[in-house]
Design a protein around this nucleic acid. Sequence first.
DNA 1: TCATGTGAAGCAGTTCACAGCG
DNA 2: CGCTGTGAACTGCTTCACATGA
Lengths: 215, 215
Amino acid sequence: MPERQDISPLTLNRLSVYLRCLRLLRDEGVERVSSQQLAQRFHLSSSQIRKDLTYFGEFGVRGVGYDVSLLADRLQQLLGLDRTHRLMIVGVGNLGSALARYFDGNDLHFQVVAGVDSNEQRIGKEVGSFVVRAFDEIATLVGETDADIGVITVPGDAAVQAYEALVDGGVRSVLNFAPVQLPDIEGVRVKNVDMRIHLEEMAFFLGADDNDSER
Amino acid sequence: MPERQDISPLTLNRLSVYLRCLRLLRDEGVERVSSQQLAQRFHLSSSQIRKDLTYFGEFGVRGVGYDVSLLADRLQQLLGLDRTHRLMIVGVGNLGSALARYFDGNDLHFQVVAGVDSNEQRIGKEVGSFVVRAFDEIATLVGETDADIGVITVPGDAAVQAYEALVDGGVRSVLNFAPVQLPDIEGVRVKNVDMRIHLEEMAFFLGADDNDSER
DNA sequence: TCATGTGAAGCAGTTCACAGCG
DNA sequence: CGCTGTGAACTGCTTCACATGA
């Protein structure tokens, strides 16, 4: 079994997908499923499912397949979803407050416990289930609320500062929506989500239609 | 030069990053840059920069480097950012309206031109620069507004329907925030952005801290 | 001389194909 | 027999190292 650090984000993200599929099956009352059935139903690759799973153990029964409910439980545990994670949102503008409301009640495993902003007018306001606090309280707030995941939704120029404050407070996982490369810090994991990059990828493929009468 | 379809999303997304870096340099008045300087400054790989660029042409001068302004322009053109792209938001809830406001004015190259929702109470309301229309108007609205990118921010169960309506109207690029695998349609490009998968990736690595008194 | 552009090497992630086991 | 688990083959992406050309 490989170290946690060694398994690729790609594999990991597929586990999330598998878990979602298994839950659907379970809700339908399906008890057993083969890698091939899973693959066919959800447009996945059966050999990849098997490979991905065996990084973490032997969950199946040869000649039979996987127990839907059991595998779902194991994946949930593997993904660290047995306890509820606590999010702190840094930057309660459009995107930040939308994410706060979006996650709140939308997911059992993730709960928004705090939000901060640098804008005076937003401080003290209630967004979702928390009251917005000041930007410079980030580090203390992390301790107070026991947040373990930081979500950065401030403009680019404030992102690094927000990041360092979060890490200062003890956060070790950060979801970054700012279009800035955050510095590597030992033991801290950053996941970037960059809307502009996504849109520009779309734009590139659209561009093809224009200048294309040739070839 | 490879076909548009053939170049990998990874390369493509890096082009967006390069463009962003070049703009920063240009704003600072830097006129020439070598792949190594770029790499060092923005934590990239110099050989990868060169490889990525040469998929599309020879933009540099041997022994000298790249003209910042010129390369930025070429990349911008390559990425299809010479014209403004028109977004239609399907599902004007928290996330949808936040994205609408977020993109509006935030980016020269992407403009939100329409939004729809199935919720009666939202229809007719003004969000950002458009008035919310009904869900069943999707296909017609695409024609009316000349939208070329669809953004799906509805709950999972309505996503496929939204998707098919967008494609019906003529949209060929879709950014999908719903946790659902949209069916492949010839000539249509879908980019999935799944918050839960991102969070579960974070959760997995956090899980390590618990059962681990290591190192 | 210096940095690009590029084949070749190296590495990672996916698919194949079948041995092994219920 | 059927399906998992898995080495081996393959594919694709990244890095290396140097010939090429301003």
